[in-house]
Design a protein around this nucleic acid. Structure first.
Lengths: 377, 377
DNA sequence: TATTGATGCGGGAACGTTCCCGCACAAGAG
DNA sequence: CTCTTGTGCGGGAACGTTCCCGCATCAATA
């Protein structure tokens, strides 16, 4: 990792005759072999043999020198490296991959919402998850290619994918079935009930709900209400279960509103329904479905609530705008960075050590308490 | 594109002896060649020769049959295809790439803000641009790999990139220099002054400013104020110039506030500065820097403005939350989808037909008028 | 001085495709 | 019957690496 060799002297000084594409191999081989092609001279990229010829060495030696393998004298090693550097040699990644048998490429599918593809990337959670996945994977030597959920098999079939990460398993997209059929390992940031054979990472739903509700309770709230997505994701099912258990244990009535589909519009409507529900107005609101915190706050105000005066608010969200509202909104982070890290670690383990068929890791959540959930004194 | 062959019969029925990794090539070749490796039997992926052997044909013939090339009798072609299908054959993408000389892979660098990498993906503009780029590229046969801006050369150097798209050229990241030095073509969604040798797509700044200001003017506003990023991006420079020209032409005082850095915090503070500025309070606000529309609205309210009663508001933003505020916020879309499409089209043209060194395309903007910028009657 | 062992380097076969040819055979023209 | 033309298929090189070997050379030991 010498910084110098990493960045220094990038100017590829041209050396000798940059090979006229003749390729006369000495053997008295098949007749009519090397016929001069039209030879468009766009960019005769320098290959390993070119470096070898220039340095008066064999390609084996140069390869070993550059990769730090083999038994070579320091002088020869240095000479090969220097020649390669001067000639601006860059190894052909495709050839390496072919030799290695793996492309170190993983696909990243982000779920599609109805017929508006890719709006998922706009969700802060998925944006962060995507970025963190790419960064983590790259640090471990894997590149991430973006795959819209609606992609046809003909589109990704031409890619040498070692594995695929599916960011939103709720959408039981055809693509997952096709991937599994193509014997490509599938990983996911959530586990879905009844989908076997895939690897997953999940977040600790029980801890999440308990943290938020305990926090409400400690602030004196006694009539909390929950807004939760109506999905088959294990996380959301467990959120509901944990909520039920917590309410029973604390002897408070169980209030929850389900959101049928993601997106700010539906969630805001569910929030409004939750705020208008029941005989007594709720005094705390936990929004597990991701929505823009400022919008949730505005909805509460429209319904005559003062936050945090007569309504404590916690949003499950990664949205940075939560910090800038008045009051700032307490958020429960699902830790997309940690999810990505755990997911990639698991993926790499499976790919490189060949672990079991199905498995998962559990990631904790994090409550960032801000003014919206702190009862004023 | 037969749907049937695309999805149908994906079950790879195992055929004959799935080759015991022996590979005894008949020629009396070099001694000590085929030594049985430890041979981990994980997944003896079926190759072209396996299909050929099973079908009693040559690999040339099978290849031609599957690719629809060559001179083959219909019967043989069908037989090869059927055998391949039954054996669950999937061509090795890496080998194809090696033969073809290109990997059909393009990198996508998204700029880094200070030392918080990847927060850019959270901006709705970049999220949409990213998604649209990936989808458009994939439709044209190119895959997009995500590259964090901070990536070391050692990380992406191992990738067979045909080109790289840089999503935020403002950050004059080392990566761009390195890419150009590595002779990898660079494309960008914006042009930056003084960066030569790269291809770009840009949006029509002049039309954008005129549309917004004309709209304000038509609604009766006479004291518009502009909030614009302080960057070297050509677009932002042209926005300022267009604003100056428009103000001069319409005889209104030129009011503008510059934002030093992106992000909701800085932009909101600039908005507050803009709203408190000058002897007379402004009656219209054009925010060119991307910020969350609900936050801008809230800031205006904190300063005692009624929108749209005594302040008309237009935000340059792709943020979907603009629709859900009260009143909904008028937005000026920079058309990331169109930018992506134009950019990829240009990229493909350069890559496949080898066009000129530098060039660009211009994309128009779109004003979505909502209640926040319509003077109530 | 022979024998071993270690060291330094190169030859050449893979990796799995595609594609340029050549060859065999059949059919039509002279 | 021979010469050409066309059709159908297969052999084998090439794409640019890596890595398994083998062959020298040389020092150390018997």
């Amino acid at each position: 990792m010498t910084e110098a060799s990493e960045h220094g002297g990038a100017t590829p000084e041209r050396f000798g005759a940059p090979r006229g594409r003749d390729r006369t191999d000495g053997r008295g081989g098949a007749p009519g072999a090397a016929r001069g092609r039209p030879a468009p001279p766009p960019s005769p990229r320098v290959r390993l043999v070119d470096v070898a010829r220039e340095a008066g060495l064999s390609k084996t030696t140069v390869s070993a020198a550059l990769n730090g393998t083999g038994r070579l004298s320091p002088e020869i090693r240095e000479k090969a490296r220097e020649t390669a550097r001067l000639m601006g040699y860059r190894p052909n990644a495709t050839a390496r991959q072919l030799r290695a048998g793996r492309a170190r490429l993983i696909g990243y599918v982000v779920g599609e919402l109805a017929d508006t593809p890719w709006t998922f990337l706009e969700s802060p959670y998925f944006a962060r998850l995507t970025g963190a996945t790419a960064a983590t994977a790259l640090a471990r030597g894997y590149a991430v290619v973006l795959l819209p959920a609606g992609s046809l098999q003909s589109e990704w079939a031409a890619l040498p994918l070692d594995a695929v990460v599916v960011a939103d398993p709720v959408a039981d997209d055809r693509i997952v079935e096709d991937l599994l059929a193509a014997r490509i390992p599938v990983f996911s940031d959530r586990s879905v009930e009844g989908r076997p054979g895939a690897h997953w990472v999940d977040v600790d739903a029980d801890a999440a709900v308990r943290q938020a509700l305990d926090h409400f309770h400690a602030q004196g709230a006694r009539r909390p209400v929950l807004v939760v997505p109506d999905s088959t994701t294990r996380f959301h099912r467990e959120v509901e279960a944990a909520h039920r258990a917590w309410c029973a244990a604390h002897g408070v009535p169980e209030r929850a509103v389900r959101v049928a589909e993601p997106g700010n519009g539906p969630v805001i409507r569910a929030v409004e329904a939750a705020l208008g529900t029941g005989p007594e107005r709720p005094d705390a609101l936990l929004v597990v479905a991701e929505a823009s915190p400022p919008l949730v706050l505005e909805a509460a105000r429209r319904h005559g609530y003062d936050v945090p005066g007569d309504l404590l608010l916690v949003c499950v969200s990664e949205d940075e705008t939560a910090v800038h509202t008045e009051p700032p909104v307490t958020t429960l982070s699902l830790r997309p960075d940690a999810v990505a890290e755990a997911g990639i670690a698991h993926l790499v383990a499976v790919l490189e050590q060949g672990l079991g068929e199905t498995g998962g890791a559990m990631v904790p959540v994090r409550l960032d308490v801000r003014a919206s959930s702190v009862r004023p004194v």
